[in-house]
């Protein structure tokens, strides 16, 4: 499983990110194999932008991504649950003041 097969050695895997017309950030939309970055961009354009999905593409070698370990999930993400003062609803504003 950790052993890389022929395809992966010769045709690296790329992650594809697309920025939509709505002006939001690039968003991960899928992956593909390609020999180099330029061909990965070309293939991403052909497969992932067939219906006006976006205005900009990023391709990133999958091997360049560092991901958080799922085992650390609780340690990383649980603590925010108790920090309710980070949300606007924690603070009381009298009704007479109106929308804030």
């Amino acid at each position: 499983m950790t052993e890389k097969s022929g395809t992966e050695k010769t045709m690296p895997l790329w992650e594809v990110f697309i920025r939509s017309r709505t002006g939001l950030s690039h968003r991960h939309c899928g992956s593909l194999h390609a020999p180099d970055a330029e061909m990965a961009l070309q293939a991403a354009r052909d497969v992932y932008t067939r219906r006006g999905e976006g205005l900009s593409i990023w391709v990133v070698p999958s091997s360049a991504i560092t991901a958080s370990d799922p085992q650390d999930k609780d340690a990383l993400f649980e603590p925010t649950a108790s920090k309710i003062y980070r949300h606007p609803t924690f603070y009381e504003v009298p009704e007479e003041v109106g929308h804030m």
Binding site: M1, T2, E8, E15, H28, S31, S62, S63, I65, A67
Partner: peptide, 12 residues
Amino acid sequence: MYAQALNVAEKA
């Protein structure tokens, strides 16, 4: 569809 590189299955 991230990163096979990380895919260390814990078969044990």
